[in-house]
Each structure stands twice: as structure tokens, then as C-alpha cells.
Simulated scan of single mutants.
Amino acid sequence: MPDPVRADRPDQPDQVRRSARNAAQRRDIHALTRQYERGALTDAEYAAELARLRGDG
């Protein structure tokens, strides 16, 4: 019978790394967006960096 305390926890280190990577990616995208909103980045710079962070290119 599975342990009910551990039922919600990821068992695989890969799942933990994925969560950390997603959190880091969200943080980086948020920081990038704030820079763009302040006018520190051009549209092209913002789009290129956003694509890189999302893994689109």
C-alpha cells in the first residue's frame, strides 16, 4: 500500500529538477518582461530573448 504522506511528492529527481527549471524560467521571463516594460529592451531584443528562454530557438 502506498504511503499517503508521500502520495503528492515527486519520487523522481527529474521531476524536482523540472519544477526548479520551470520556476527559474518563470523568474527569468518575469525579469525580462519588466526590463521590456521599462524600455530597457527593444521589441526585437525582447522577442529574441523570450524565444531563447522558452526554448524556441
Results as ranks from 00 to 15, higher is better:
31 A>V: 06
13 P>V: 14
42 T>N: 00
55 G>H: 02
55 G>E: 04
2 P>R: 03
43 D>L: 04
49 E>Y: 02
9 R>P: 04
38 R>T: 03
49 E>D: 02
13 P>Y: 08
38 R>I: 01
47 A>L: 02
47 A>F: 00
54 R>G: 04
9 R>T: 11
56 D>V: 03
8 D>K: 10
44 A>K: 02
26 R>Q: 14
40 A>T: 07
14 D>Y: 09
21 R>H: 13
44 A>G: 00
12 Q>V: 08
12 Q>W: 12
54 R>S: 05
50 L>S: 00
37 E>N: 12
55 G>A: 02
11 D>E: 13
45 E>W: 00
19 S>A: 15
44 A>T: 06
25 Q>W: 03
48 A>T: 09
24 A>I: 11
13 P>E: 09
33 T>W: 01
22 N>H: 08
57 G>I: 11
32 L>E: 05
23 A>R: 09
55 G>P: 05
8 D>C: 08
53 L>P: 03
50 L>M: 06
54 R>I: 03
1 M>D: 03
52 R>V: 03
19 S>H: 13
36 Y>V: 03
52 R>M: 01
19 S>I: 14
33 T>I: 01
3 D>N: 15
29 I>A: 10
26 R>H: 13
9 R>S: 14
7 A>V: 09
15 Q>K: 14
39 G>H: 09
2 P>L: 07
6 R>I: 08
18 R>M: 13
6 R>F: 10
31 A>K: 08
26 R>C: 07
33 T>V: 03
30 H>W: 05
32 L>V: 02
9 R>V: 13
47 A>S: 04
2 P>A: 05
26 R>F: 07
48 A>P: 01
9 R>N: 13
57 G>K: 09
57 G>N: 08
45 E>G: 06
33 T>F: 01
5 V>Q: 10
35 Q>S: 02
8 D>N: 11
28 D>W: 07
23 A>M: 08
14 D>E: 15
37 E>A: 12
22 N>R: 14
25 Q>P: 08
53 L>I: 04
29 I>R: 12
40 A>E: 08
53 L>G: 01
31 A>L: 10
26 R>K: 15
47 A>I: 00
45 E>Y: 00
8 D>E: 10
